[in-house]
Design a protein around this nucleic acid. Sequence first.
DNA 1: ATCCCGAGGG
DNA 2: CCCTCTGGAT
Length: 216
Amino acid sequence: MDPQNIHRCFAALRAAIPEPKTELIYHSPFQLLVAVVLSAQSTDKAVNACTQTLFAAAPTPDAMAALGEDGIKTHIRRLGLFNAKARHVHALAQQLLALHDGEVPADRKALEALPGVGRKTANVVLNTQFGHPTIAVDTHIFRVGNRIGIAPGKTPLAVEQALLAAVPTEYLQDAHHLLILHGRYTCTARRPHCGHCPLFQCCEWTDKHQWAAKSS
DNA sequence: ATCCCGAGGG
DNA sequence: CCCTCTGGAT
């Protein structure tokens, strides 16, 4: 997709979603990091409910390490993958204490070396906590990017780089959130609502007409 | 390529 | 009832 078309897409999204909601603000980089680790394969609503009680009990890496794996589990039992997540969050707190003086590192390599943290999670931390220009490519953004033609049939990294190249740095935050919302509510995985999609004109997905016919 | 692993939606 | 969810590690 050529850059002009990408800009047309974002203009259309901006018009359709006038006021992007700011992401939930967490009290510290540590709490945001934990929240993102917990969010894997889970809805934001469920994660918010869990983190509220979890951070009341253990707001810092120190307290989280002391809470222990089983203690963490009692707060996140409603999430999917909660066993692995409790293990990761506990090990995460311990490693922050052991290797980084209890602070979340502002470095990609150090972040991705932490348990339960991959590129997507590292990008969220780098962007929201440390102001680095990154795009965290989750399943929504990956799907949307491939469909509309930003990086058809390619890897999440290719989508990330294409968006980084196309979106002005100061607009990355909003672009990220617009794409998430678009993927969540309109460009859905199974039954996309192409019939009332704000990106229908600029979208290069070959199946868009088929789905437009099925979705009013 | 597969596992982890539960809730909520279509 | 089946699928999907703001993934990451093996």
